[in-house]
Design a binder for these strands. Structure first.
Lengths: 338, 338
DNA sequence: TTGTAAGCGTTATCAA
DNA sequence: TTGATAACGCTTACAA
């Protein structure tokens, strides 16, 4: 089937060593010999066997993209997809192959992190979707395989991460609401097992504090990033605090749910209640009203993750890459009506 | 670093052959020996090296998902993502690893199809996004590596495909429009290099023919599946045929563009003009008005593609898997106003 | 500048 | 039931 360097060696009347040297661009080889070998390889339509090479080189030029809970959440589609694209594009540029792998906490106990890496001789791993209580987490830090986490603020010798400055993003969002005159501001957060939820909550608290508004924990509803929990959150929040004029949501998907529920309750958005999202998914620019939100450059998260990983692969120490958030103000927020 | 069967052999006082046999569940081995080896492997935290195994077995238990033009089109996000999820889930179930790879026609001339397969010893490939004029196409049919195409109606000895019955889907869509009283029906098609465009055009023609409505080629605008070409299509169609009361679009994304443009022209949807989409992407259920469209089960395309591939891998002959379309009628279509 | 030979971790063939 | 040994396709000391 496949042409091997042995075949080329035979045809060129040299040893496999020489062929290997020619193919890999070593210079301790006579130019004519090299050219002849290259020509023959071309003629025979030779393709190197990456598997054999991996075996001897002990590295595969392959990186793993491990996504925890891929299909389970509908909320993360746009987000996940764009990260995948970013990772893929940058990995391709850098001539790394990409193996896609998904898990969920239940599966991880049988198939530990390292198994995935070792089995495929992955040079490095990009890991996303892990929760604070995820069993992978401790493995990652101890592991010998370089790893880049997305949205998990961990740094180790062989471990970097990329994430938005979530505290700042949330703070900007709530500051905006406050600047528009709102003071009765509720929050619909993600679940407490996501690092970003905690950070966004801090941003919310800090913005209130700065403005001299009392923080009340009962004003924060913990959902799960999905649309239905946005609806739930609104019901919960508005039944307890009917005076609420603005809601800050930790995801666009929940913001969409919130708006849906507000409409169902006969409230107008943004006239009666302003709603601020987080993520800036594609949908945010299509729903009615258009969503005001905190923009996250997901595609760039992907490319940056690969860059971080490549640096780790070169032996550099782990580091954090925190990207600056910025607001995308559209139609779902407005000055408080007097 | 890694524990190998050699290490186990040494510790167990047997040969590597015996270890291999024990690990692979052969029965020509004394149970006690086997159990002892298994226990030792467990103790030493042994993980098989898939790379070494691939080299000797000449198969990798890996399938390639090759996507042509992944990032270029914004239109295909939801579609592509769901197919990826389906492929991934099913592949994982069947214990195949997945390598993700993207190309575009320009890159293909340097990196031919077979190179990808051979380099990674892929057992099989799932290929999507290819156009009628794609250089990969002839390679695929000649290649020795089993391949499943998505939305490309090709069958070969080692080549299957999965696709919607696009002709039928389009026909149902246009029949619905006709049943609602429309007779002045334009079509905004995808580009002519997509197989599905041709099939959907046939569906449109056939539905008209059945109803005794004259087919006029000028009523068909060829776009590129993207939103902007939906807008363009509407401008084009309505300037020539102001009497148009319904537009059938070959993608939801174009339908959204079409609606946007109609609104900009001061037309109401669906009161003045009905708009029918195709795909049933997530967005279709969020835009205003909600999109009437032809549903495509993308996730299932992914799982079915893997199933087809596995059958090919078992030596079965290539086959077609054509899935039945069904309509999702929402708000963007309505009976023609008298 | 080139070749010999060992080795990467595994499976497979053949004898014992 | 077990063990040498070769093989998979490649890289790399080391020697010539």
């Amino acid at each position: 089937m496949g042409v091997t360097i042995k075949d080329i060696a035979k045809r060129a009347g040299v040893s496999v060593t020489t062929v290997s040297r020619a193919l890999n661009g070593y210079k301790d080889i006579r130019p004519e010999t090299r050219d002849r070998i290259l020509r023959i390889a071309e003629e025979m339509n030779y393709r190197p066997n990456a598997v054999a090479r991996s075996l001897v080189m002990k590295q595969s030029r392959t990186i793993g993209l491990i996504i925890s809970g891929l299909t389970r959440s509908r909320a993360g589609h746009d987000l996940t997809f764009n990260i995948i694209c970013g990772v893929n594009d940058r990995a391709t540029e850098a001539e790394y192959d990409l193996v896609l792998s998904t898990t969920d906490p239940s599966r991880q106990e049988q198939v530990p992190y390292m198994e995935l890496c070792r089995r495929r001789q992955l040079d490095g791993v990009i890991l996303m979707g892990v929760r604070t209580d995820d069993p992978y987490l401790k493995e990652v830090l101890e592991a010998s395989v370089p790893c880049v986490l997305i949205d998990v603020p961990l740094v180790g010798e062989k471990c970097s991460h990329v994430t938005l400055d979530n505290e700042r993003g949330a703070r900007l969002a709530v500051q905006h609401l406050i600047a528009e005159g709102h003071r009765q501001i509720g929050m619909i957060n993600g679940h407490a097992q996501a690092f970003v939820s905690l950070e966004r909550l801090n941003g919310y608290r800090n913005a209130l504090k700065e403005a001299g508004i009392e923080y009340r924990p009962e004003r924060v509803f913990f959902g799960d990033f999905e649309e239905s929990s946005g609806q739930e959150g609104v019901r919960h929040l508005l039944s307890r605090f009917p005076e609420t004029t603005a809601v800050f949501c930790a995801s666009d998907t929940m913001a969409i749910g919130a708006i849906r529920e507000l409409k169902a309750m006969g409230k107008r958005v943004p006239e009666d209640v302003s709603v601020m999202g987080f993520d800036d998914i594609e949908l945010a620019s299509f729903v009615t009203p258009l969503l005001s939100t905190v923009h996250q450059p997901f595609y760039e998260f992907g490319t940056r993750a690969v860059d971080l990983l490549i640096r780790l692969l070169k032996g550099e120490l782990g580091t954090a890459d925190v990207v600056e958030p910025h607001l995308a103000i559209r139609e779902s927020t407005a000055p408080r009506c007097p």
